[in-house]
Amino acid sequence: MPNTLSIVIIEKECARAQLIVEALSAEASYHVQVISDFTGLRESIAACNPDVVLIDLTNPSRDILEELTMASSPLERPVAMFVDQSETMLTQQAVDAGVSAYVVNGLQPDRIRPVLDAAIARFHLFHRLRAELDATKRALEERKVIDRAKAILIRSRNMTEDDAYALLRKTAMDKGRRIADVAEALITAASMLR
């Protein structure tokens, strides 16, 4: 039975941190901590004394971890990014997913692999969830704009709602633009003519 692996996740977004924690906590031999406040990051990491640090690649604070790769760090346990020559594919997958792992030198690659696999899967899942959420928000936003444009047409040209929508759609098709864009333009123009 290997010793408990101490994992630190540096992540501002609660939802994503939670996803990774859930995935890793299922494993009894992992001790998982989350740092979401980046002030004094070096000290916070040193206090956790981790074996593995997982960090989002879009986080500018990632450069602070580079400092820990030099032996004179306060951690005084040299760390390296996980790029074993034999594990290039895994590193590539991690970078594609947007996560990076720093491990304390001497940790066996077979112990980090399942951690990274889980993190990669969760990062992908998170991206997908966020993309869906964004798409839904955008659709809602566009519907509101189209409704306002319809209201303008109904008022100013005495149209029925169906005719107003048909006119927006026809104009969009003729101009090769999206209905939401045409609606947006109409609202802007109407506000200037008011």
């Binding site: 690649l57 879009t58 986080n59 500018p60 604070s61 990632r62 450069d63 971890l65 580079e66 990014m81 590193t91 590539q92 970078v95 990076s100």
Partner: peptide, 15 residues
């Protein structure tokens, strides 16, 4: 790129 280490990784890993 958001950070120098990420820019370096993008370069080394062929992105």
């Amino acid at each position: 790129a958001p950070s120098w280490s990420t820019l370096r990784d993008m370069l080394v890993l062929g992105q």
